[in-house]
């Protein structure tokens, strides 16, 4: 039996009185990349925030490696191994790149381990190594996305959640970002939940996919199934 890293059943959330997610169920197998495709405002980011506990779910349950995390606050969920990278959330702009990375490794108290991890991150993201002492606020868009992802993977998370990593990037940078994502999955065997508007790119690296519309999962399947479905042929992506 294949192990499920993340298992979400019947999650519903609201923002004030407005329903944001309705009975969303979703699962990711260990070592897989799953993508959630959807338009702006479909509820993709809310889904990630709910998994991380930054948004409270009204109903439903979330399990990480088979263990319920519903009662845990955000920082405990991070400690359990969920990491989220979202370029839209920005960086700690007044801190250097190195400090940003160290803040990402918030739960690593062992200095030796921390330095090891930093070295590994520099290997995966060589561009950051050149920028170590530069303030994060001065990075270019692509560099910032890299920093965001690097900061999330430094913890070697059980589940890496990427929120629109291609957003606002030049095509060449988009290629680079997806190359990194694929490498993280294949080389480091990282389980990834990828939320994207860029459906084609996302499906290229994913093992499984979901389509979310107006807070509901309307379709799920293998990448090929999604490609041939109405949702991707007539891209909801804007």
């Amino acid at each position: 039996m294949t192990q499920k890293t993340l298992e979400i059943s019947n999650i519903s959330t609201r923002y004030g009185q407005i329903p944001m997610l309705m009975n969303v169920s979703l699962e990711i197998r260990k070592g897989h990349i799953a993508c959630v495709l959807g338009a702006n405002g479909a509820g993709k980011t809310t889904l990630l925030k709910t998994i991380l506990g930054m948004v409270k779910a009204d109903t439903g349950s979330i399990k990480l490696n088979g263990e319920s995390i519903d009662h845990l606050p955000t920082h405990k969920r991070v400690e359990k191994g969920i990491a989220m990278a979202a370029a839209a959330f920005g960086t700690l702009h007044k801190m250097t790149v190195e400090k940003n990375l160290k803040m990402g490794a918030y739960y690593i108290n062992d200095n030796k381990l921390l330095n090891e991890r930093l070295e590994q991150v520099y290997q995966s993201f060589p561009i950051l190594k050149e920028r170590l002492n530069q303030k994060a606020g001065t990075l270019s868009g692509g560099e910032r996305t890299m920093l965001t992802i690097a900061r999330a993977v430094i913890n070697k998370p059980t589940l890496l959640m990427l929120d629109e990593p291609s957003l606002g990037l030049a095509p060449i940078m988009v290629e680079e970002v997806f190359r990194v994502i694929k490498k993280l999955n294949e080389k480091d065997n990282m389980t990834i939940l990828l939320v994207e508007q860029n459906a084609q790119k996302a499906l290229d690296v994913s093992h499984y996919g979901y389509v979310i519309q107006k807070g509901q999962i309307v379709f799920k399947g293998e990448p090929d199934e999604l490609r041939s479905s109405e949702y991707v042929e007539n891209p909801v992506a804007g």
């Binding site: 955000t74 920082h75 700690l92 400090k99 803040m103 739960y107």
Partner: peptide, 24 residues
Amino acid sequence: TKIGLSMQAISQNKDLSRMIGINV
């Protein structure tokens, strides 16, 4: 110190701080 750095992080970006696991 971790607490001091967390304070700085929160002052720069509260949502991000929460996301990276700081007990805000």
